[in-house]
Simulated scan of single mutants.
Amino acid sequence: MTEAEQKVASRPKIVFVVAVAANGVIGREGGLPWRLSTDLKRFKALTIGKPVVMGRKTWASLARPLPGRPNIVISRNPDFEAPGAEVAPSLEAALTIALERAAAIGSDEICIIGGGEIYRQSIGMADVLHVTEVQAEVDGDTRFPPIDPATFEKVTEEDLPRGEKDSHAMHFVTWRRRTAPPGGAGV
């Protein structure tokens, strides 16, 4: 293994956690266009104990820091404050903070949790995509970038019927990068 490959292999994986409608929509007017209790439980299980990186709009939609995980919010506004989270001026700065927090807590993953612009900027660095495919087409103003099957391969998938507290049925898919991203985490 080359030195570059060892560096990539030893760093925490960059993992996306996202719910996407059949038409690519992930958000509407600063919120989620569905109610998916089953997916929220899965989201918590996938992210607990790991640094979570998000954009300012995603932070605003949460209304509070996610407990049990370091929260890192990206905002270009130098005066922006996110009580209970760390603020970074760029994706690169957020990933640097996330790598430090992951090392401090012994996490082997950093989770990118939105929104659309953050996913678009970072998909080239992602190692794993945990995608909840919402079995519906919904109206929305925020979209997830297309997943390139030449870059990512499906490694697991599971159908999940609509639960009592779910507005739609879901299909869980995990994608893994076929080759290491160029330059590792980009930090």
Rank of each mutant, 00 (worst) to 15 (best):
R76V: 13
L91A: 15
V73C: 00
P70W: 00
Q135Y: 06
R56C: 00
L66N: 02
E92A: 11
E133K: 14
G116Q: 09
P145R: 06
I118V: 15
W59A: 00
D148E: 10
V138I: 14
S90W: 07
P149F: 04
I72C: 02
E157D: 14
G140H: 04
A63N: 01
R64T: 05
E100K: 10
P65D: 05
G114A: 01
D108G: 15
S90G: 03
I147G: 12
N71K: 02
C111M: 02
I118L: 10
E133L: 12
Q135K: 10
A136M: 05
Y119L: 01
E158S: 08
V138D: 12
P70D: 01
E137Q: 11
E86F: 04
P146M: 01
H130Q: 12
A126R: 06
E117H: 07
S107K: 08
V128L: 00
A126L: 07
I118M: 08
G55L: 00
A63M: 03
Y119P: 09
W59D: 10
A88R: 09
A102W: 15
Q121F: 06
R69G: 02
K154P: 06
P67H: 11
G140W: 08
P89Y: 15
P83T: 02
T142S: 15
L129D: 00
V131C: 07
C111W: 07
G116E: 07
R143Y: 14
T58A: 01
T58M: 00
I110P: 09
V134D: 10
